[in-house]
Design a protein around this nucleic acid. Structure first.
Lengths: 157, 157
DNA sequence: TATTGTTATACTCTATAACTATA
DNA sequence: TATAGTTATAGAGTATAACAATA
């Protein structure tokens, strides 16, 4: 047996309480995310989009005229936290806030032509970055990983 | 086919560049970690150990008399960032810094008796928290997930 | 009364750089 | 010169609470 995980400990020796941090999902998720986000920032460059800005832009491209409240909900963050992200994307000329006829409280978000082009380019870079980070995994393993992560995510609803 | 992932996109339609954030590993890692860490803090309570303090305590229990530099290296953080973590654990009476004969620069870290007991208790709580979050996954799937995450982590060396 | 976008504020996490005392 | 621990500092990221405009 090469590795001891929380799962195998639970199966093989339920009374075992040692210091093996390596078996915990939370610890591994955090460490893996640090590796991925560090590489994301490296490949996107000094003034490139940060992960959160990329995610927001992606959803604005995918859902034109989405409102800020709806976008915050999809991203799983507070409305207040989204303001700076949209300010940044607007400052880059990638996104515009537009009034919505019939409800003057709402701002509809849409990607500009430049924002769409920037997203297409960023998307390619992120695909390349993930392909390299996941080069040791088979396409089947990548699909399995995404599925398992999404099942954990679904516990947060 | 219910889901579209980066992996299946790469296989089935390499030219596809849409806004499907859901297929990215980085995004899923982040969202899954938010779910896990939020539940970790919930189960550990208001004045309970935060994830980083739990991780540090775990390694101190596992590696008695580890130095701060070595612990920081294992945790993948800077030495400077570890100071506040150890200050906190020392303040709780869980860890002590002790001089090392032969090199007066070094502080050896060890868990007190109370710290060992607190860790054993925290460990049980974290095992229960992960068991509940992973209750939809088979033990085999949990082991697969840990293995895949560790392979991503290994790309960060 | 409730909702949208916003501001103010604070707290956590983390990194960089510089300091001290030792080696 | 180099290393261990520390301090000071700054920058992300995020949350809570409150506000104005609007519904």
């Amino acid at each position: 047996m090469a590795r001891s995980t929380a799962a195998t400990r639970r199966e093989e020796d339920p009374t075992e309480v040692d210091g093996d941090l390596e078996g915990f999902i939370g610890y591994n998720l955090k460490r893996a995310y640090v590796v991925v986000s560090t590489d994301f920032r490296r490949i996107m460059g000094k003034n490139g989009l940060a992960p959160r800005q990329f995610s927001a832009l992606s959803l604005i491209v995918q859902f034109p005229n989405i409102t800020q409240s709806e976008l915050a909900r999809k991203l799983g963050i507070e409305r207040s936290g989204l303001v700076a992200i949209i300010d940044d994307l607007e400052g880059r000329g990638f996104v515009s806030r537009q009034p919505v006829p019939g409800d003057r409280r709402v701002q509809a978000l849409s990607a500009t032509t430049g924002g769409q082009a920037a997203y297409a380019e960023a998307h390619k870079m992120v695909m390349a970055h993930e392909a390299e980070l996941l080069s040791d995994l088979s396409p089947q393993e990548v699909e399995t990983l995404v599925g398992l992560l999404q099942r954990i995510r679904s516990k947060g609803d």
